[in-house]
Design a protein around this nucleic acid. Structure first.
Lengths: 184, 184
DNA sequence: ACGGAGGTGTGATGTATATCACTTTTAAAT
DNA sequence: ATTTAAAAGTGATATACATCACACCTCCGT
């Protein structure tokens, strides 16, 4: 499990044993059951999470009560309400388990310590942020340029594992179409 | 002009004069005329740009030749085809001037040097990347949750200056609706 | 001063997708 | 094993929006 996290980080920057020990000291682990909330709207968001096993959905609920999926997170993914996390303001999103899930938790302070004291980790987070931004930009383009069917096909091609594990009604809420349309 | 850049950076991290001199040495400046391309699809993207004055559009052109606007950039904004920049692959987007524009250019190497040799700048870029990601995520949500009219109203409220300076047909291409729909 | 390009408004029509209502299937819970 | 809830398919109807076609207007360059 530690090994899994270490490999994840070392995909971007090699570490010494001492460095990894220092990093690991900033993390705690936690287990959640299916349907459990990790973050609820209004919560104070203390942590960013890295998924060891399981599956999460990050959701925005609009005024009319409709749910929209900002993103899914499975093994090896980071997730949180990052706006709330970085600005230390109440959550506007909720983070909920679609399966029993185990995560590494990195506190806001831990994040600051890692960035301040280990330049390698700041580099790591910079890479993650850059690629996260690029992924978001690609998704914007996909929403601007393609219709529902095409977006679904893209998703199946890109993340077949996700399509297997997630109910179609949720995929619809991620792609921005109604459940019924997706089914046809 | 240097002062303008310095203030921009110091909004996030204070600098000594020596540090700023070092930073500035990594930049060059360049002027472009209205309608000129800074990046064209297929180009090798050597630089990220910071807008001193003027206005840019970052555009994706789909198979059918239709233009979709990834983003606009005005004074004080960074812009580039970041995917091409960070991965050093050919541009899939184009960057074009909507007005006469002057920019600071930061080369890929310069970016690396700044990150490696000045931790403060790595912190600066980390902040920018994080907030860029969050802005993109908000835009995704706005595309998922609201209809054309609402998105337009949001934009007017958020960036009235932009709405003034940009033709409506381009705002439409940014919001993901047709020019005609926007006009009604 | 004139011609052309770019920008904008408006009608008529077509289409993708939302919404509502209902059924069937599958999976979870006691 | 039986009950209950969640997921998935399907028809009928409504609607937001795209598309096409055209008129008008205002810059800008020569």
């Amino acid at each position: 499990m530690q090994q899994q996290l270490r490999e994840h980080i070392e995909k971007i920057i090699p570490l010494t044993d001492e460095e990894f020990d220092f990093i690991l000291a900033q993390f705690t682990t936690k287990k959640f059951k299916k349907h459990q909330y990790i973050i609820q709207e209004g919560d104070n968001v203390k942590y960013a999470y890295w998924v060891i096993s399981g599956l999460l959905k990050l959701v925005y609920t609009d005024n009319s009560g409709k749910q929209h999926i900002v993103s899914f997170a499975m093994e090896d993914w980071w997730e949180s309400d990052y706006y709330a996390f970085h600005t230390q303001t109440p959550a506007t999103l909720s983070l909920e388990c679609l399966e029993d899930t185990e995560v590494y938790c990195l506190s806001y302070e831990g994040y600051g310590i890692l960035c301040d004291q280990l330049q390698k980790m700041e580099r790591f987070f910079l890479q993650k942020a850059n690629f996260g931004f690029l992924a978001a930009q690609r998704r914007i383009l996909s929403l601007l340029t393609t219709d529902a069917k095409e977006r679904y096909e893209q998703l199946v091609k890109q993340s077949p594992a996700l399509v297997q594990r997630v109910p179609k009604s949720l995929l619809a809420a991620y792609l921005g179409v109604s459940r019924e349309t997706l089914s046809r």
